[in-house]
Amino acid sequence: MKALAGILVVIFVILAALAILHPLAPGKITSAIGFSNDKPHIKHAIAYFVLALLSLVWIRFQTNAGKV
């Protein structure tokens, strides 16, 4: 589970970077996920960063799981 949380951190940071760089052509899906190049997608980037942060918290809980 700790590895999964680590993978999620990396994925969400990449998604946040893509939302900031917004490199793709506008479309329904690319606009919805915040990657379309019609405008910067700050809300999407913040949402992805928050999810990355929560994944880090999950790692923290996993690290101490089982300790008394």
């Binding site: 329904k28 606009s31 919805a32 996920i33 915040g34 999407h44 949402a47 928050v50």
Partner: peptide, 10 residues
């Protein structure tokens, strides 16, 4: 939050 960010404008 995710529903709002992804789908609000559409």
């Amino acid at each position: 939050g995710l529903l709002g960010v992804f789908f609000e404008s559409s």
